[in-house]
């Protein structure tokens, strides 16, 4: 990132290649929408390039990247244009068909679909805390700093999120 700040913008492609998969996974798990997630990954890198001078280099690049990613996600929630695909299990199937993601269709079992639906039904804050801690490798302390709250608050968010997830799953399975 230091090289990018010094004007060698081509180095941003190395950072992109290194982190694009994780970042795409982060947004995909939050939105359950592949094309929207791709747009959001691009938006993050756009902001990283535009605001490169604000990177102080006193922490991990990944941490800075996720703070930008979190803002992109919050902007999306604020706009409220975001379509919640998770409210009805049948919606997910429709989304997959639309995206013609053949690989996803093949591997998608009913339980996996329900799990995706359930994850979309818990609040965005709890979902994000779970995704960041479970999949993106961030520690509770780091998530707390990103979210401007205490470590215990994040743990409580994860715990409540998991319990809600379990209840929603049970509910969906019994339908």
């Amino acid at each position: 990132m230091k090289k990018v700040q010094e004007g060698d913008l081509s180095k941003m492609s190395l950072l992109y290649e290194r982190h694009k998969r994780d970042l795409f996974g982060y947004f995909y798990r939050l939105t359950n929408n592949a094309s929207k997630s791709e747009d959001m990954v691009q938006n993050v890198f756009y902001r990283l390039l535009k605001y490169k001078h604000t990177y102080r280099g006193d922490g991990k690049f990944v941490y800075w990247m996720y703070s930008v990613a979190q803002n992109v996600w919050l902007d999306l929630l604020r706009k409220k244009k975001f379509i919640e695909y998770g409210n009805d299990p049948s919606n997910y199937k429709e989304l997959s068909d639309k995206e013609k993601n053949a690989e996803d269709l093949l591997i998608a079992t009913e339980r996996k679909n329900l799990l995706k639906v359930a994850l979309q039904r818990i609040s965005p804050e709890k979902r994000e805390a779970i995704v960041l801690s479970r999949f993106q490798g961030l520690k509770y302390q780091e998530i707390a700093k990103l979210s401007n709250c205490t470590e215990n608050a994040i743990k409580a968010r994860v715990h409540r999120g998991l319990m809600e997830l379990k209840d929603i799953m049970l509910n969906l399975e019994s339908q």
């Binding site: 913008l9 997630s37 990954v41 691009q42 390039l49």
Partner: peptide
């Protein structure tokens, strides 16, 4: 709590499409 945490492992993420790469490199 542990079982729900573990079950999240089942959540799979598709591969991003080449369109995302093309968009990024165009922007760069």
């Amino acid at each position: 709590t542990y079982a729900t945490w573990q079950s999240l492992e089942e959540l799979e993420v598709p591969k991003s499409s080449p369109v995302m790469d093309a968009g990024f490199y165009k922007m760069l």
